[in-house]
Amino acid sequence: MENPKANITSTAAGQHEKKDGAGGPIILFFILGLAASLVVGWVFVPETFYYTKEQPIDFSHAVHNELVDNGCQSCHFFRADGSYSGSPRLAQCIECHQEANSDDPNEIRFVEEYVKKGREVPWLVYSRQPACVFFSHAAHVKMAAIDCVTCHGPIGESDSLRPYMKMDDCAECHAQAKVSAGSVQTQKDGCLVCHH
């Protein structure tokens, strides 16, 4: 393969190289590019693409938790068919909030905007699962006796909310507990345990 031609071109190129000078600036540019893209990737894009949403009403679990008799179950409960009620509906809220009970501007707004108009509050629920997930509260709370705080954090005592769980978080626990290792493919949980 080697032929004199190649030698000639290589020396010609070498000559060219000399004119341009050393590799210093090239490395500088490389580093510049690296740094710029790192900033874009780690800072700029997350800042611009991902945003936080405000709840329609600034709701305090802590305040409510103090007032109710039955802890979390006062508002979040199991229905007779074993399904979980999730976030309370307006009808439930109205039981206490027919009229504003305080001069808290949030409560007043809640009564004016939602109770009086009979509109459901479009709560933003961190723990809401996508449509393809079936989550059984009964299986976790009743059968496996897992506390609410294990997954939801001490939400009843504070306003800070635990970021939503990804599948990996579920998987971690399920793998540990070997919840239903019936899958032929993986010898772990079958997908159907949670998905449909």
Partner: peptide, 12 residues
């Protein structure tokens, strides 16, 4: 999300 969550198995 990670393959190790579910489908990964240490088998032959």
């Amino acid at each position: 999300m990670f393959p190790f969550s579910f489908e990964w198995v240490w088998d032959m």
